[in-house]
Design a protein around this nucleic acid. Sequence first.
DNA 1: CCCTGTGAAACAATTCACAGCA
DNA 2: TGCTGTGAATTGTTTCACAGGG
Lengths: 275, 275
Amino acid sequence: MATGRNHRPATRSRGIPEATVARLPLYLRALTALSERSVPTVSSEELAAAAGVNSAKLRKDFSYLGSYGTRGVGYDVEYLVYQISRELGLTQDWPVVIVGIGNLGAALANYGGFASRGFRVASLIDADPAMTGKVVAGIGVEHTDRLERIIEDNGVSIGVIATPAGAAQQVCDRLVAAGVTSILNFAPTVLSVPEGVDVRKVDLSIELQILAFHEQRKSGELEAGEAAGQDTAAPAAPPAVSVTRRGAADAGGEAGAGNDSEAGPDGDVPAVMPA
Amino acid sequence: MATGRNHRPATRSRGIPEATVARLPLYLRALTALSERSVPTVSSEELAAAAGVNSAKLRKDFSYLGSYGTRGVGYDVEYLVYQISRELGLTQDWPVVIVGIGNLGAALANYGGFASRGFRVASLIDADPAMTGKVVAGIGVEHTDRLERIIEDNGVSIGVIATPAGAAQQVCDRLVAAGVTSILNFAPTVLSVPEGVDVRKVDLSIELQILAFHEQRKSGELEAGEAAGQDTAAPAAPPAVSVTRRGAADAGGEAGAGNDSEAGPDGDVPAVMPA
DNA sequence: CCCTGTGAAACAATTCACAGCA
DNA sequence: TGCTGTGAATTGTTTCACAGGG
């Protein structure tokens, strides 16, 4: 999606798969908990269980970082915490700005996980003059007019967009122009950014829709099988909308790990059917 | 999630890849926007651009649903909206409960995307007696004591957890026991659920950490390292494989799961060395 | 022609299974 | 002996490229 093709051939042992990167924070959280309980070492099996993945995957993931374990023993908790933190770039301070201090923006500002681990909310920005000056999560909200100044003065490279969908692209453009190169977007819209800028999206409604998809299958297990062979035409699909909800029932289902998130509906739509 | 073995019978045409399912909401959003502008048909190229994916992927995705397009023309917007909605199970009503009405829970309750598209907030639940009776997003908050009753009375099968990490598993257990089979978890913790229950996680801090990882590389490339084309450190990981990074880049997205739990800033990790 | 639908190729992630070191 | 680290096999996803209908 966003980012195009940065990164040159370089790469050495630095070929960490994206899927692995996405799991490192998980391992880190589990390790942090162990660290707090002063557990000195942990096996791939134990750590995997705590992180909710299987051990083979965890070992493979760690193998991309290097050989940080000890055969026959396991991994040194403190050491791993440090290595993963470093790999994720959490040993340095990342000032972030949150734009759009509505319900969600305020929730984000108050979110403990944001403050911990290297991220520091440098500023809260909102376009509503009525918000300016209000204090949220101990930080005074500033007006959008000062966005560029704030980004530059604080050396912010990560921005969080929690505005309504309609304002997101515009805010995004300003953030990028001011120097932000990584954006976490909560607005239900697709942002277009220049090459070199990373965008990650989190969309609440998409996750629900994915759940609904699986949920629907669980209940609708009585469905008749389609005819064998590939049925080509399925033009006039009868709107079978009267599925009755029931509880229980199990149908193998296990959510995979997370997935892409994004988008979100705005208005509502009529389920019209064309001829 | 100890035992993973999930796998559906892989019915005839019902073998929609998970990656495709995760994109359907995206297409739906784009289509909805087109529908509102009364655009009658759209080509895979246009729709793909609007959804932020490439056209080949979109066509492949749609091919799993059936042949809903017209060669030489494109797709009928209204028809596709209907088909995707149906596939996602959005043509039926999904009552959901949100547990944990703090900042985030309130934000979710107010989130428009929730209400639209088949999801209806049946109830807001919080453990704090002080919250009981308060009205959030037009809905009165109810006490946790009534959780089971609410689930059953409303036939709720989807629950959203927005409680602190410490309460999440307990809430999850009660939801499941009461009949909920799909959970959207915002708490930074790994939930364990019985087979047949789907869990999707959204973790704000994980996304930031992934961004930090990429961000770190961007700056690192310009400054150090690149000069010699080599990277630093790399403990003892023998390269072995010289990954030749081609153009691509960007992270697809894959979200992880909960993360971060603690509050106390454990200060910066000390570089403890094992060995 | 234009644009969909789809086999086949390329690529990525996961899982298996076991060699080998502490 | 126990557990890591990793090739190899497997499974899943994306991209290519083109056949074929409108």
